[in-house]
Design a binder for these strands. Sequence first.
DNA 1: TATGACGTTTACGTAAGCGTCAATCGTTGC
DNA 2: GCAACGATTGACGCTTACGTAAACGTCATA
Lengths: 150, 150
Amino acid sequence: MTATSPAEGHRYRIGDLCKEFDVTPRTVRYYESCGILRPERRGQARIFNEGDRVRLRLALRGRRLGFSLGEVREMLDLYDQEGGEVAQLERTLAYGRQKIAELEERRREAEEALKELETWQHLLTRRLQEARGTKAGDERAKGDGKHGRA
Amino acid sequence: MTATSPAEGHRYRIGDLCKEFDVTPRTVRYYESCGILRPERRGQARIFNEGDRVRLRLALRGRRLGFSLGEVREMLDLYDQEGGEVAQLERTLAYGRQKIAELEERRREAEEALKELETWQHLLTRRLQEARGTKAGDERAKGDGKHGRA
DNA sequence: TATGACGTTTACGTAAGCGTCAATCGTTGC
DNA sequence: GCAACGATTGACGCTTACGTAAACGTCATA
Protein backbone atom coordinates (compact mmCIF):
# COMPACT_ATOMS: atom_id res chain seq x y z
CA MET A 1 0.00 0.00 0.00
CA THR A 2 2.26 2.68 1.28
CA ALA A 3 4.88 2.12 -1.38
CA THR A 4 2.63 1.51 -4.34
CA SER A 5 -0.10 4.14 -4.25
CA PRO A 6 -0.05 5.99 -7.53
CA ALA A 7 0.45 9.73 -7.44
CA GLU A 8 1.25 10.24 -3.76
CA GLY A 9 0.40 13.62 -2.39
CA HIS A 10 3.04 15.64 -0.63
CA ARG A 11 6.77 15.55 -1.11
CA TYR A 12 9.14 16.33 1.71
CA ARG A 13 12.75 17.37 1.94
CA ILE A 14 14.92 15.97 4.62
CA GLY A 15 14.64 19.12 6.71
CA ASP A 16 10.86 18.93 6.72
CA LEU A 17 10.88 15.48 8.27
CA CYS A 18 13.61 16.48 10.72
CA LYS A 19 11.55 19.38 12.01
CA GLU A 20 8.33 17.42 12.22
CA PHE A 21 9.81 14.51 14.14
CA ASP A 22 12.64 16.31 15.90
CA VAL A 23 15.46 14.17 14.56
CA THR A 24 18.69 15.05 12.76
CA PRO A 25 19.41 14.56 9.05
CA ARG A 26 21.96 11.96 10.12
CA THR A 27 19.20 9.87 11.61
CA VAL A 28 17.05 10.09 8.49
CA ARG A 29 19.97 9.13 6.25
CA TYR A 30 20.87 6.30 8.55
CA TYR A 31 17.33 4.99 8.42
CA GLU A 32 17.53 5.07 4.64
CA SER A 33 20.74 3.05 4.78
CA CYS A 34 18.83 0.50 6.86
CA GLY A 35 16.10 0.23 4.25
CA ILE A 36 13.50 1.84 6.48
CA LEU A 37 13.12 4.85 4.19
CA ARG A 38 13.33 4.75 0.40
CA PRO A 39 13.27 8.30 -0.92
CA GLU A 40 13.43 9.08 -4.60
CA ARG A 41 16.26 11.25 -5.82
CA ARG A 42 16.16 14.52 -7.67
CA GLY A 43 19.78 14.78 -8.63
CA GLN A 44 21.48 14.05 -5.34
CA ALA A 45 18.72 15.34 -3.14
CA ARG A 46 16.34 13.00 -1.36
CA ILE A 47 12.63 13.44 -2.01
CA PHE A 48 10.42 11.74 0.57
CA ASN A 49 6.76 10.95 0.07
CA GLU A 50 3.83 10.30 2.40
CA GLY A 51 4.81 6.65 2.75
CA ASP A 52 8.28 7.55 3.94
CA ARG A 53 6.76 9.92 6.45
CA VAL A 54 4.53 7.19 7.86
CA ARG A 55 7.42 4.76 8.00
CA LEU A 56 9.56 7.27 9.85
CA ARG A 57 6.83 7.81 12.41
CA LEU A 58 6.41 4.07 12.92
CA ALA A 59 10.16 3.56 13.09
CA LEU A 60 10.61 6.14 15.83
CA ARG A 61 7.77 4.59 17.78
CA GLY A 62 9.34 1.17 17.42
CA ARG A 63 12.64 2.49 18.70
CA ARG A 64 10.98 3.99 21.76
CA LEU A 65 9.43 0.61 22.45
CA GLY A 66 12.85 -0.98 22.56
CA PHE A 67 12.94 -2.64 19.15
CA SER A 68 16.09 -2.55 17.05
CA LEU A 69 16.11 -0.88 13.66
CA GLY A 70 16.45 -4.33 12.14
CA GLU A 71 13.24 -5.49 13.79
CA VAL A 72 11.55 -2.24 12.85
CA ARG A 73 12.50 -2.78 9.26
CA GLU A 74 11.15 -6.32 9.26
CA MET A 75 7.90 -5.15 10.75
CA LEU A 76 7.54 -2.37 8.20
CA ASP A 77 8.26 -4.82 5.42
CA LEU A 78 5.22 -6.78 6.49
CA TYR A 79 3.06 -4.10 4.91
CA ASP A 80 4.76 -4.56 1.58
CA GLN A 81 3.98 -8.27 1.25
CA GLU A 82 1.91 -8.18 -1.91
CA GLY A 83 0.60 -11.68 -2.33
CA GLY A 84 3.20 -14.20 -3.36
CA GLU A 85 3.49 -17.83 -2.46
CA VAL A 86 1.32 -19.34 0.19
CA ALA A 87 4.33 -20.58 2.13
CA GLN A 88 5.80 -17.09 2.20
CA LEU A 89 2.51 -15.58 3.32
CA GLU A 90 2.36 -18.11 6.12
CA ARG A 91 5.87 -17.31 7.29
CA THR A 92 5.02 -13.63 7.23
CA LEU A 93 1.88 -14.25 9.24
CA ALA A 94 3.79 -16.28 11.80
CA TYR A 95 6.33 -13.51 12.18
CA GLY A 96 3.52 -11.03 12.63
CA ARG A 97 1.91 -13.12 15.35
CA GLN A 98 5.24 -13.26 17.16
CA LYS A 99 5.63 -9.49 17.02
CA ILE A 100 2.07 -9.02 18.19
CA ALA A 101 2.85 -11.20 21.20
CA GLU A 102 5.95 -9.14 21.92
CA LEU A 103 3.97 -5.93 21.74
CA GLU A 104 1.38 -7.30 24.15
CA GLU A 105 4.22 -8.14 26.49
CA ARG A 106 5.55 -4.59 26.23
CA ARG A 107 2.17 -3.18 27.05
CA ARG A 108 1.83 -5.48 30.03
CA GLU A 109 5.26 -4.54 31.30
CA ALA A 110 4.52 -0.86 30.86
CA GLU A 111 1.36 -1.29 32.89
CA GLU A 112 3.14 -3.14 35.68
CA ALA A 113 5.94 -0.60 35.86
CA LEU A 114 3.32 2.12 35.89
CA LYS A 115 1.49 0.56 38.81
CA GLU A 116 4.64 0.22 40.84
CA LEU A 117 5.78 3.76 40.18
CA GLU A 118 2.35 5.08 41.12
CA THR A 119 2.31 3.11 44.34
CA TRP A 120 5.73 4.43 45.19
CA GLN A 121 4.61 7.95 44.37
CA HIS A 122 1.71 7.79 46.79
CA LEU A 123 4.00 6.59 49.54
CA LEU A 124 6.46 9.36 48.87
CA THR A 125 3.68 11.93 48.74
CA ARG A 126 2.56 10.83 52.20
CA ARG A 127 6.10 11.07 53.50
CA LEU A 128 6.39 14.53 52.02
CA GLN A 129 3.26 15.65 53.83
CA GLU A 130 4.55 14.23 57.07
CA ALA A 131 7.83 16.05 56.55
CA ARG A 132 5.96 19.28 55.96
CA GLY A 133 3.83 18.66 59.02
CA THR A 134 6.92 18.04 61.10
CA LYS A 135 8.58 21.21 59.95
CA ALA A 136 5.28 22.96 60.67
CA GLY A 137 4.21 26.19 59.03
CA ASP A 138 7.69 27.01 57.83
CA GLU A 139 7.67 25.14 54.52
CA ARG A 140 3.96 25.50 53.93
CA ALA A 141 4.11 29.26 54.20
CA LYS A 142 6.72 29.88 51.55
CA GLY A 143 6.67 26.77 49.36
CA ASP A 144 2.97 26.24 48.92
CA GLY A 145 0.02 28.21 47.78
CA LYS A 146 -0.39 27.33 44.12
CA HIS A 147 0.32 23.62 44.18
CA GLY A 148 -3.23 22.81 45.15
CA ARG A 149 -2.66 19.12 45.66
CA ALA A 150 -1.25 17.19 42.72
CA MET B 1 12.34 -0.64 51.33
CA THR B 2 14.03 -3.15 49.12
CA ALA B 3 17.51 -2.28 50.26
CA THR B 4 16.83 -1.69 53.92
CA SER B 5 14.70 -4.55 55.11
CA PRO B 6 16.40 -6.11 58.09
CA ALA B 7 17.30 -9.77 57.88
CA GLU B 8 16.49 -10.44 54.25
CA GLY B 9 15.55 -13.97 53.43
CA HIS B 10 17.29 -15.77 50.61
CA ARG B 11 20.78 -15.29 49.33
CA TYR B 12 21.67 -15.90 45.69
CA ARG B 13 24.87 -16.57 43.83
CA ILE B 14 25.41 -15.03 40.47
CA GLY B 15 24.58 -18.26 38.67
CA ASP B 16 21.20 -18.47 40.39
CA LEU B 17 20.15 -15.09 39.10
CA CYS B 18 21.54 -15.86 35.65
CA LYS B 19 19.45 -19.00 35.36
CA GLU B 20 16.30 -17.41 36.71
CA PHE B 21 16.40 -14.42 34.39
CA ASP B 22 18.29 -15.96 31.47
CA VAL B 23 21.15 -13.49 31.43
CA THR B 24 24.91 -13.97 31.53
CA PRO B 25 27.19 -13.26 34.49
CA ARG B 26 28.66 -10.46 32.41
CA THR B 27 25.31 -8.72 32.40
CA VAL B 28 24.88 -9.07 36.15
CA ARG B 29 28.37 -7.71 36.84
CA TYR B 30 27.81 -4.88 34.41
CA TYR B 31 24.60 -3.96 36.18
CA GLU B 32 26.52 -3.91 39.44
CA SER B 33 29.06 -1.55 37.89
CA CYS B 34 26.14 0.73 36.97
CA GLY B 35 24.91 0.77 40.54
CA ILE B 36 21.76 -1.18 39.74
CA LEU B 37 22.80 -4.13 41.88
CA ARG B 38 24.72 -3.93 45.17
CA PRO B 39 25.65 -7.41 46.30
CA GLU B 40 27.56 -8.04 49.50
CA ARG B 41 30.86 -9.86 49.28
CA ARG B 42 31.94 -13.03 50.92
CA GLY B 43 35.60 -12.93 50.09
CA GLN B 44 35.55 -12.29 46.39
CA ALA B 45 32.20 -13.85 45.69
CA ARG B 46 29.07 -11.77 45.23
CA ILE B 47 26.13 -12.54 47.46
CA PHE B 48 22.83 -11.18 46.22
CA ASN B 49 19.74 -10.77 48.34
CA GLU B 50 16.02 -10.50 47.64
CA GLY B 51 16.34 -6.79 46.96
CA ASP B 52 18.96 -7.35 44.29
CA ARG B 53 16.73 -9.94 42.71
CA VAL B 54 13.82 -7.51 42.56
CA ARG B 55 16.05 -4.80 41.15
CA LEU B 56 17.35 -7.11 38.47
CA ARG B 57 13.83 -8.02 37.44
CA LEU B 58 12.81 -4.38 37.27
CA ALA B 59 15.98 -3.46 35.40
CA LEU B 60 15.43 -6.05 32.70
CA ARG B 61 11.86 -4.89 32.31
CA GLY B 62 13.03 -1.30 32.00
CA ARG B 63 15.50 -2.27 29.31
CA ARG B 64 12.80 -4.05 27.33
CA LEU B 65 10.74 -0.91 27.51
CA GLY B 66 13.51 1.10 25.88
CA PHE B 67 14.94 2.86 28.92
CA SER B 68 18.69 3.20 29.33
CA LEU B 69 20.47 1.63 32.29
CA GLY B 70 21.06 5.14 33.58
CA GLU B 71 17.35 5.86 33.62
CA VAL B 72 16.66 2.46 35.12
CA ARG B 73 19.09 3.21 37.89
CA GLU B 74 17.50 6.57 38.61
CA MET B 75 14.07 5.00 38.76
CA LEU B 76 15.26 2.27 41.10
CA ASP B 77 16.88 4.86 43.31
CA LEU B 78 13.48 6.41 43.82
CA TYR B 79 12.60 3.54 46.13
CA ASP B 80 15.55 4.31 48.33
CA GLN B 81 14.58 7.87 49.10
CA GLU B 82 14.16 7.61 52.84
CA GLY B 83 12.80 10.90 53.93
CA GLY B 84 15.29 13.72 53.72
CA GLU B 85 14.75 17.34 52.94
CA VAL B 86 11.44 18.55 51.64
CA ALA B 87 13.08 20.09 48.58
CA GLN B 88 14.72 16.80 47.72
CA LEU B 89 11.48 14.90 48.17
CA GLU B 90 9.79 17.33 45.83
CA ARG B 91 12.44 16.90 43.15
CA THR B 92 12.13 13.15 43.48
CA LEU B 93 8.36 13.36 43.14
CA ALA B 94 8.66 15.52 40.07
CA TYR B 95 11.05 13.07 38.47
CA GLY B 96 8.65 10.26 39.29
CA ARG B 97 5.76 12.08 37.65
CA GLN B 98 7.85 12.56 34.53
CA LYS B 99 8.69 8.88 34.37
CA ILE B 100 5.06 7.97 34.91
CA ALA B 101 4.14 10.13 31.95
CA GLU B 102 6.79 8.43 29.84
CA LEU B 103 5.49 5.02 30.81
CA GLU B 104 1.96 6.02 29.88
CA GLU B 105 3.30 7.11 26.52
CA ARG B 106 5.02 3.75 26.04
CA ARG B 107 1.82 1.93 26.82
CA ARG B 108 -0.11 4.10 24.38
CA GLU B 109 2.46 3.52 21.67
CA ALA B 110 2.42 -0.21 22.29
CA GLU B 111 -1.35 -0.21 21.92
CA GLU B 112 -1.24 1.76 18.69
CA ALA B 113 1.42 -0.45 17.19
CA LEU B 114 -0.58 -3.46 18.28
CA LYS B 115 -3.71 -2.20 16.55
CA GLU B 116 -1.87 -1.56 13.32
CA LEU B 117 -0.17 -4.93 13.31
CA GLU B 118 -3.47 -6.67 13.99
CA THR B 119 -5.20 -4.81 11.20
CA TRP B 120 -2.41 -5.75 8.85
CA GLN B 121 -2.64 -9.35 9.98
CA HIS B 122 -6.32 -9.58 9.18
CA LEU B 123 -5.69 -8.24 5.69
CA LEU B 124 -2.87 -10.68 5.11
CA THR B 125 -4.98 -13.55 6.42
CA ARG B 126 -7.66 -12.70 3.87
CA ARG B 127 -5.10 -12.59 1.10
CA LEU B 128 -3.78 -15.93 2.22
CA GLN B 129 -7.24 -17.47 1.99
CA GLU B 130 -7.71 -16.01 -1.45
CA ALA B 131 -4.39 -17.46 -2.50
CA ARG B 132 -5.46 -20.84 -1.16
CA GLY B 133 -8.79 -20.50 -2.89
CA THR B 134 -7.04 -19.74 -6.15
CA LYS B 135 -4.89 -22.82 -5.81
CA ALA B 136 -8.12 -24.72 -5.21
CA GLY B 137 -8.50 -27.88 -3.12
CA ASP B 138 -4.82 -28.64 -3.13
CA GLU B 139 -3.79 -26.51 -0.15
CA ARG B 140 -7.10 -26.79 1.67
CA ALA B 141 -6.98 -30.54 1.71
CA LYS B 142 -3.71 -30.89 3.53
CA GLY B 143 -3.25 -27.59 5.35
CA ASP B 144 -6.72 -26.86 6.65
CA GLY B 145 -9.27 -28.58 8.77
CA LYS B 146 -8.93 -26.96 12.18
CA HIS B 147 -8.60 -23.32 11.17
CA GLY B 148 -12.36 -22.92 10.84
CA ARG B 149 -12.44 -19.58 9.09
CA ALA B 150 -10.74 -16.74 10.96
C1' DT C 1 27.79 37.71 -8.13
C1' DA C 2 28.12 36.41 -3.61
C1' DT C 3 26.15 34.96 0.44
C1' DG C 4 23.46 32.15 3.09
C1' DA C 5 20.50 28.21 3.85
C1' DC C 6 20.03 23.73 2.86
C1' DG C 7 21.56 19.60 0.96
C1' DT C 8 25.16 15.88 -0.27
C1' DT C 9 29.07 12.12 0.45
C1' DT C 10 32.85 10.15 2.95
C1' DA C 11 34.69 8.78 6.90
C1' DC C 12 36.21 8.58 11.41
C1' DG C 13 34.42 8.96 16.45
C1' DT C 14 31.66 7.52 20.34
C1' DA C 15 28.57 5.85 24.05
C1' DA C 16 25.89 2.01 25.60
C1' DG C 17 25.54 -2.67 26.51
C1' DC C 18 27.22 -6.31 26.67
C1' DG C 19 30.50 -10.85 24.52
C1' DT C 20 34.60 -13.21 24.98
C1' DC C 21 38.73 -14.53 26.16
C1' DA C 22 42.71 -15.59 29.76
C1' DA C 23 44.44 -16.30 34.10
C1' DT C 24 43.33 -17.13 38.75
C1' DC C 25 40.92 -18.30 43.03
C1' DG C 26 37.82 -21.04 46.26
C1' DT C 27 34.82 -24.55 47.51
C1' DT C 28 33.15 -29.20 47.01
C1' DG C 29 33.07 -34.22 46.29
C1' DC C 30 35.67 -38.32 46.08
C1' DG D 1 45.19 -34.36 47.91
C1' DC D 2 43.32 -33.22 43.79
C1' DA D 3 40.17 -32.63 39.94
C1' DA D 4 36.02 -30.27 38.69
C1' DC D 5 33.10 -26.57 38.86
C1' DG D 6 31.79 -22.15 39.50
C1' DA D 7 33.21 -17.61 40.42
C1' DT D 8 36.43 -13.52 39.96
C1' DT D 9 39.12 -9.80 37.74
C1' DG D 10 41.03 -7.49 33.95
C1' DA D 11 41.09 -6.32 29.25
C1' DC D 12 40.04 -6.13 24.66
C1' DG D 13 36.31 -6.63 21.05
C1' DC D 14 31.95 -5.95 18.92
C1' DT D 15 27.36 -4.16 17.38
C1' DT D 16 23.98 -0.60 17.30
C1' DA D 17 22.68 3.97 16.46
C1' DC D 18 23.82 7.59 15.64
C1' DG D 19 27.39 12.36 16.23
C1' DT D 20 30.55 15.10 13.91
C1' DA D 21 33.77 17.19 10.81
C1' DA D 22 35.48 18.10 6.09
C1' DA D 23 34.70 19.28 1.60
C1' DC D 24 31.58 20.15 -1.77
C1' DG D 25 26.93 21.04 -4.75
C1' DT D 26 22.55 23.90 -5.54
C1' DC D 27 19.36 27.31 -5.31
C1' DA D 28 17.06 31.70 -3.97
C1' DT D 29 17.75 36.14 -2.57
C1' DA D 30 20.11 40.50 -1.99
